[in-house]
Design a protein around this nucleic acid. Sequence first.
DNA 1: GACCAGGCACATC
DNA 2: GATGTGCATGGT
Length: 202
Amino acid sequence: MISEQLTEIYKLLLNHFGPQHWWPGDTQFEIITGAILTQNTSWANVEKAIANLKSAHLLTPEALHHLDTPQVAELIRPAGYFNVKAKLEIIDTGQLRAELLAVKGIGCETADSILLYAFGRPIFVVDAYTARIAVRHELIDPDADYEQLRGLFQSNLPDNVQLFNEFHALLVKLGKEFCRPNPKCQGCPLEELPHCLEQNYS
DNA sequence: GACCAGGCACATC
DNA sequence: GATGTGCATGGT
């Protein structure tokens, strides 16, 4: 059963890597900002952009609202796609998924990251790592779309915010170090995951 | 220098 | 509906 496999993977990852304490960020707005800035961008670059905003005391919706797009773009330059991301603006807190998705620049993953990590909703976040790992462990069809992937996790796991939070963070941790797009190791069968982890991280 | 990073919108076929 | 392309910095 998929649910047993997912639970086993979760236990292995948690045991191996420990809690990831996601999402990094001191405030709800910082989490939302990070979710947008990290689109197709390494977290190290996002941290630089957030540091710029913080040191300028601009990491609030009100402060950013008073700047024009080029000013914001310059501050978030290290995060890449700065002209695109600078136009983006989340006004309200507690928005529904459909409302988030209606904002240009917010797609499924960003919306779900905001819902789970900023608003504590039980939504499983699917990112490139999650998809890659699920496919390589043959938990889902390679051409599955975002909603199918989200369904894989949500319908086979208990509806638990803390579980969704930790599991996604652990998948990213695994993916970053292990499950590259064009890696020497293409991923291993589930039964070999403990061995793979042991070999690669011990 | 190629490849990749916690994507997304839009054009075109 | 599927596929391609622009957006962009910075680390390996």
